[in-house]
């Protein structure tokens, strides 16, 4: 048996590493949801003017769109935000090798997008992330609101794009090393997601639903 540290690391990352990350991710998400739901909320005795649940569900979807005048006031956050989120899901779900992993894991696959397109999306996503980072540092409000976590989470989100791009294009370290780093960077993202603001990936559903519920029952626009 030959000893290739790069291959060993990649195998660990794809095997036990990925399993650990998955368990932490799932446990963490369940924990965060339980933390929310366990608090409960009081029954509202004021007679509603409109269906709260309907408004809650509507708000889950309506907040995907920019709100009145906001895109003009914070264009970088809006454009960068949309591009990054779209890019993240396109690369994750429509890159051939990623689909293969899903197929191995869940037994279902789907057609991917051409590699050059995925690469372009990756670059656009990285540019978008850099843009929102600059917007964070330069805007006095975002600068004041930002803590160490905001910057750490930015790095953790950026790394999978960067390492993936470098691995595919044979940049930097030898391919196996780069691939190992790529898988590890994804696992790092999975592990920190539930315990940082990245948890919004799941909890935004609850936040929007509650907002719509609370205000919609008054017949107010949400």
């Amino acid at each position: 048996m030959t000893s290739d540290p790069a291959m060993d690391l990649l195998m660990w990352a794809r095997g036990p590493g990925f399993q650990i990350a998955t368990v932490v991710l799932l446990f963490g998400i369940v924990l965060r949801i339980v933390e929310i739901l366990a608090l409960g909320r009081a029954r509202d005795l004021a007679p509603p003017k409109a269906s709260p649940a309907q408004s809650g569900l509507r708000t889950v979807f309506s907040r995907f769109l920019p709100r009145h005048g906001m895109a003009m006031r914070s264009p970088v956050i809006h454009i960068g935000g949309y591009l990054f989120h779209a890019g993240f899901f396109i690369v994750l779900l429509f890159f051939g090798p990623h689909i293969q992993l899903f197929e191995e894991g869940f037994g279902i696959g789907w057609p991917g997008l051409p590699s050059p397109l995925i690469e372009a999306v990756t670059v656009i996503s990285m540019v978008a992330l850099v843009a929102v980072l600059i917007a964070r540092v330069r805007d006095p409000v975002r600068k004041l609101l930002s803590t160490f976590e905001d910057y750490a989470v930015w790095v953790v989100t950026f790394l999978p794009f960067l390492t993936g791009f470098m691995a595919v294009n044979k940049l930097g370290l030898p391919y196996t090393w780069m691939m190992a780093l790529h898988v590890l960077s994804v696992e790092l993202l999975m592990v920190v997601l539930p315990f940082t603001k990245l948890t919004h990936a799941v909890t935004f559903l609850f936040a929007r639903y509650y907002n719509g519920w609370v205000n919609g029952r008054k017949g107010a626009a949400t």
Partner: peptide, 16 residues
């Protein structure tokens, strides 16, 4: 309550 927890869990410091 649950809404408060959901709100704080979700804030990404976007500043909007």
């Amino acid at each position: 309550d649950a809404p408060v927890a959901a709100f704080f869990s979700s804030c990404v410091h976007c500043g909007l």
